[in-house]
Amino acid sequence: MDKEPRISISVTVNGALVEAEAPARESLADFLRHRVGLTGTHVGCEQGICGACTVRFDGRIARSCLTLAAQAHGHSIETIEGVTDSGEIADLQEAFLRHNAAQCGFCTPGMLITAAEFLNSGETARRESIRQFLSGNYCRCTGYHAIVDAIAEIAGKKADA
C-alpha cells in the first residue's frame, strides 16, 4: 500500500464539532493529542493496559489508544480538558489536590475520568470497590492510597447529599 489512506472525521470533542482528515490508522489518542491539540490525554502503553489514555466515548470511559480516530466519527468524545472546563469534576479535582493524589500527573487525567465514571455508576463506595474500579489504571507514583482517599471522600459526600 503506497498511499496513506485518509478518513474525514467529524466528531464532537468536549461539546464542539471538530472536522478533520486523518490517516485511517491514527488512534483516537494521537488524534486528540496531535491533531486537536488536547494533550491532557496521555499515552503510556498503546496496549490498553495502563489507562493513561482514558477518555469518554459517548459518555462512557474508553481507551483512546484502542479506538481509531475514524471510529469516533459521529460520536461524542470528552477529555480531561472538557470535564475540567465544564466544572463537572471540580470537587474530585480539589479532593485529589487535598489528598496529594497526583504526583507526576501522568496517570491523573485517566484516573479522574475513570473515577468520575465510578462516582456516576451508583456502586457502593467501599474502598474495596473503588480499588477494583481503578484497576486498569496504573499509577506508578502514588501507591494508590491517596487516590482512593480522594474518591472515597467525594463518594461519601455524594451519598450524604
Binding site: 494533550t39 480531561i80 485529589f96 489536590l97 507526576c104 500527573g105 501522568f106
Partner: peptide
C-alpha cells in the same frame, strides 16, 4: 500547605515531552 503545582496535573495541563511540537 497544599502542593499548588499539582493543580495543572489534575486539569490535564501538565506539559510532558511528547506534548511539545
Amino acid at each position: 500547605l497544599a502542593r499548588l503545582s499539582a493543580r495543572k496535573f489534575v486539569q490535564g495541563r501538565g506539559r510532558y515531552l511528547d506534548d511539545i511540537t
